[in-house]
Write a protein that binds this DNA or RNA. Sequence first.
DNA 1: CGACAACTTGACGGGCGTCAACCGGAGTGG
DNA 2: CCACTCCGGTTGACGCCCGTCAAGTTGTCG
Lengths: 245, 245
Amino acid sequence: VDKTRKQSVAAMISKLGRLGTLDPEDVAAIEGLPWRERTARGGSYLIRQGMPVSECSLLVSGFSARSKITDTGRRQIVSFQIPGDMLDLQHLVLGYSDHSVEVITDAVLLWVDADALREVAFQRPGVGQALWRDAFVDASISREWLLNVGQRPGRARIAHLLCEFAYRCVKAELASSELFELPLTQEQIADATGMTAIHVNRMISTLRVAGVISSRKRRVEIRDWAQIQVIAGFNPDYLHDQLTS
Amino acid sequence: VDKTRKQSVAAMISKLGRLGTLDPEDVAAIEGLPWRERTARGGSYLIRQGMPVSECSLLVSGFSARSKITDTGRRQIVSFQIPGDMLDLQHLVLGYSDHSVEVITDAVLLWVDADALREVAFQRPGVGQALWRDAFVDASISREWLLNVGQRPGRARIAHLLCEFAYRCVKAELASSELFELPLTQEQIADATGMTAIHVNRMISTLRVAGVISSRKRRVEIRDWAQIQVIAGFNPDYLHDQLTS
DNA sequence: CGACAACTTGACGGGCGTCAACCGGAGTGG
DNA sequence: CCACTCCGGTTGACGCCCGTCAAGTTGTCG
């Protein structure tokens, strides 16, 4: 068990390293934190909207989603996380969660006390900057989703979601760009794009008959990457994956 | 001129102070930064989507908006800023802007080099935490907007926008809760809520005939605060304005 | 092989987009 | 002082995208 924990920490450090430049002491400081490993079943909730939280966590394997609900019970998924993403970095400084975090596949996580992580973030600017960057990229993705949901027609919203998911998975070396695992039900896609599951189904059908994608079960294949980007209006600049800052 | 600059810095420090606890040395460090004051005419752009940016700025007076456009030319306003808000804190660590920043009324701003501010943010945890908090509240607002645009019907979206704007202005001591200045055209409200200006007009009319609000020109009066909150499904928790963390 | 969740397809209606016209106030120039 | 202009707001007609309701199919897991 301790061995997988070390592998997990290593995976995390590799992700943080891509977000900035970590020197050996930065790495040692991160490794020295009291990380705790935890597994979660797909469908379970890690955090509930409105609950106090004093820990931060990192997704090692599996996928998760943040969501919010209105007083009338309608749900909006506001982001997805893939392996290597921080789930709730905001709890470094905010004590209550404004959203829920749900694990959508079986997953492995690393938890650490927010105070301890904050300590390192301030003592070691290399670590702090990597965390800042992760948080700001996350915020940038939220803005793009707002644009997606607010301004694009249904088919384009779904295409955009697929493009982003594929792009991020490829960047994280989880998939090839043409064929990847999309661990989402059509209802979850609907909640993420502000549509109904039924309409999602219709729009996916049109993408399929147009030969842009093919999907069996939860395995999506992008058959025409150029065209789906056009349909989606997808431009990956908002993901800030160049370190050219 | 230097006098107004000092007042501006003082206003900013008061805002940051509300975000955390600043000791006298924190305040001195902020005051010691090479702030530059700048005025901007309503309607002008401070930052264009895709441009490199290496400065951060704070809105001293006036209002501004962040916006993004799709490849088809549709615009989404992703947030508003009121006096005391940071406009582009993300440029502490991200070198390119993923959105535009537009001043929507005549405004006064304070600019500072991102490198210098980042330096202070790391050397003085009190300052750093206040900035972290500002950034995370900003992200939380984005998520609430996503919920708003994705899941609520048109009338509720507008009501929610009004509630948030009023609440934030009151919190910043810019207005009383019943009567406040809303410096937005209906077209801007439309761009912020993912609707058309025409439909915004219709929905505002229904709020007016229901006696919930009254508005002449750009001055909005909330006549029934309890009811507009119900219509909007507004719950201010997401603004994280309690320091109870 | 039964049960349940997810997916699929069809019919119907409504919220909201689009197009078009008109109004009203603020600024401008003669 | 009054036309002219322009921007923003207002109102109406019409239609489409997408939500809703309903039924049926597929796939998976016990």
